[in-house]
Computed example of a mutant assay.
Amino acid sequence: MNRRLAVENLQRAFGGVQAVRGVSFALDAGEVLALIGPNGAGKTTCFNLLNGQLRPDAGTVRLDGVDIVGLPPRRIWRMGVGRTFQITATFASMTVRENVQMVLLSVHRRLFGLWTPAASGFRDEAMALLERVGMGAQAERPCGVLAYGDLKRVELAMALAGDPKILLMDEPTAGMAPGERQELMALTSSLVRERGLAVLFTEHDMDVVFGHATRIIVLDRGQLIAEGTPDAVRADPKVQAVYLGGAA
């Protein structure tokens, strides 16, 4: 077992609303862990606590045994926590390749200017990542003209450019057609095997969750109510009552 992330008693309130209440879980290398729950369950807040966008009121978040609570998001990113977002975050006027190159330049702390344009840096490395996610043929197209499913692949390549140990994926298949959803998650699973990644993702499509997660944790009103294999979670009466509509 190679434990990448250990979360203990995580708590965060907004005024009188307790968004995350005493949440604890672990994430190992090679694991694809789904975090699910109804709207307002605290999933995105939990994500924001893990990568430093929010600071918890209490609890610890340990990355490879090191407590990262209080560190800024950029520092946590450099320690190996990558993230994709529900709404894709790319530079629309730049090409697909240039978007990935910008991340690589940041990773390697390279500056560019009049004599060293960004387009010349880490070109081969960017192309290799784009080929891996199936976007090599569209490398020279501006991101602003891409279909949404293709943007999701570009964002995945950008996240991989940071060479993460852990990848947080917030609604990775939102806005995608059913076939695209399955393809993206199959790609993610293959990257987990190749790179020894640990993936934590949120998702509303239960076909995606039960088809690709190795383990599932379920939140309701900020609290962890179930954890286990897909089969165990599907059969859990509490999960059926609050999230799956009572159907096994």
Rank of each mutant, 00 (worst) to 15 (best):
R4S: 08
L54I: 08
V192W: 02
G70P: 04
A186Q: 14
T84C: 11
L35D: 05
S190R: 15
G134F: 04
T95W: 05
I216D: 01
R193H: 05
A26T: 15
L191R: 01
L10R: 01
G179M: 03
A137P: 00
L105C: 13
V66L: 09
M102C: 14
P237D: 03
R12M: 05
C143M: 04
L104A: 12
E31Y: 09
D28M: 04
E171F: 09
A226W: 07
E31V: 08
A235M: 04
D64M: 12
G113K: 01
H108N: 11
L219K: 03
T214F: 00
C46A: 13
A58H: 07
L160A: 08
P237H: 06
G37V: 13
D220Y: 14
M206W: 13
G222H: 05
P117C: 00
D28Y: 10
G246H: 08
N39Y: 11
P178E: 04
V209D: 04
G15F: 06
V20Y: 11
G228C: 04
D163N: 13
N99V: 13
L191V: 04
V100K: 06
G134E: 02
K238V: 15
L184V: 08
G175C: 03
L191D: 02
T173N: 00
Q240N: 09
D64V: 08
Q223E: 15
M185V: 03
R234I: 03
G136R: 06
H204E: 13
G30A: 05
R62V: 11
V17F: 14
A139D: 06
A29E: 15
R193I: 00
P230M: 02
T173I: 02
I166W: 04
R55T: 15
A119Y: 07
F85H: 10
H204F: 14
L160S: 10
E180R: 00
Q223W: 00
V233D: 01
G37H: 09
L219F: 06
Y243P: 13
V69L: 00
D57G: 15
M102S: 14
G42N: 09
A147V: 10
W77P: 00
L219S: 03
R215W: 01
S189H: 08
P72S: 00
C46F: 08
V133P: 07
A232N: 06
V7M: 02
M169W: 06
A177L: 13
G70N: 01
G245T: 13
A13S: 15
T214G: 11
M79F: 06
T90V: 15
V107D: 01
L200M: 13
K238R: 15
M206A: 11
L151Y: 01
E171P: 09
T88H: 07
M169T: 10
P56E: 07
R110E: 13
V192P: 10
R109K: 06
T84R: 11
P230F: 04
S120V: 12
A58L: 05
I36F: 09
D28G: 10
L35G: 06
A13D: 12
Q53K: 03
I36G: 05
F91G: 12
V96G: 10
A19E: 09
V133E: 02
R109W: 00
F112A: 05
V66T: 14
A147W: 10
E227T: 03
E98I: 08
T60W: 01
